[in-house]
Amino acid sequence: MATISSAPAPGMQQIDLSKLNLPQLAQLKQQLDQELNVFQDSLQTLKMAQGKFVESGESVDKLTPETKGKTILVPLTESMYVPGTIADSENVIIDIGTGYYAQKDIDGARDYFKRKVQFVTEQMEKIQMMGIEKSKAREAICMMMEMKLQAQAQAQGQGQALKATRS
C-alpha cells in the first residue's frame, strides 16, 4: 500500500511514499488535486459534447421521407423564428470540425452521430479510469501524511514528557 504508481505515462515511476517527508507529500497531494480537477473539467466538457451529439442524432431520426415539404420554424436567433419548408429530407449537412461541413444522407448522418457518441463515451471512460487511479494515489498520500503527523506528535509528546521528568 505504501508504494503507489503515479503518472501512468512514459515517465512511470514508483515512489515509496514512506520515504517522503511531509512537505513533499503535501506537494504531491496538491499536484494530484490539480490533476483531478482537470479530469473533472474534461469530463464535464465531454459530457456536454456527448449530449450535443445525442441530440443531433435524435433530430436526424425525426427527418423521415414523410417530412418533405412540411413547414418548420427556422430559428434566426434564439428567440426569433421564420417559417420554412423542408426541401430535402434525405440529406443533411454536418459540421465535421475545423470549418469543414459534409453532406450526408440520413443513414450516414445517423452513423456519424453514433460513432461520435461512442468516441466521446470511450474518452470519458478512459478519463474516469485515470481519475480512479489518481484518487487512489491521493488517498494513499493522505493516509501517509496522517501517519507521519501522528508520529511527529508522538515524538513531540515524548520529548515534552522527558523534559517534564527532568525538571
Binding site: I93, D95, I96, G97, T98, G99, Y100, Y101, A102, Q103, K104, Y112
Partner: peptide, 22 residues
C-alpha cells in the same frame, strides 16, 4: 481535431459534397 476531420473526409464517398465555412 484535424485528425478527426481527416478520418471523416476519408470515410466520405467520392461524390459526397463538402463545404468549408468561410
Amino acid at each position: 481535431e484535424n485528425k478527426a476531420v481527416k478520418e471523416e473526409l476519408m470515410l466520405l464517398k467520392k461524390d459526397a459534397e463538402v463545404f468549408k465555412l468561410i
